[in-house]
């Protein structure tokens, strides 16, 4: 099972990365350092927001499950 997963993921990622050679031509913005490129800033902010959202959703689900369990145990 593990081997199949690795094989699938490696094939998929290799397929994505295969045409990398065609992207050697950079836009003028990409010749700068990464702290000067807006895409890096945006991606960092997006990922931090996504982590915060996932964490909040997890807390809500745990709280809800706890409440429901308590409620059902009380009813029964």
């Amino acid at each position: 099972m593990g081997r199949r997963i690795v094989l699938f993921i490696s094939t998929y990622l290799s397929a994505i990365a295969a045409p990398c050679w065609a992207h050697h031509a950079h836009d003028p913005e990409e010749l700068g350092h990464h702290w000067e490129i807006a895409a890096y800033h945006n991606e960092i902010r997006f990922q931090m927001a996504a982590i915060a959202t996932v964490f909040a959703a997890y807390l809500i689900v745990v709280r809800l499950a706890k409440t429901l369990r308590k409620w059902f145990s009380y009813k029964c």
Partner: peptide, 17 residues
């Protein structure tokens, strides 16, 4: 693989996608 693709993420992967 995460290390490799995390390193070329914005430079290459975004353009490929």
């Amino acid at each position: 693989m995460v290390y490799l693709f995390g390193t070329i993420k914005i430079g290459y992967l975004s353009k490929v996608l």
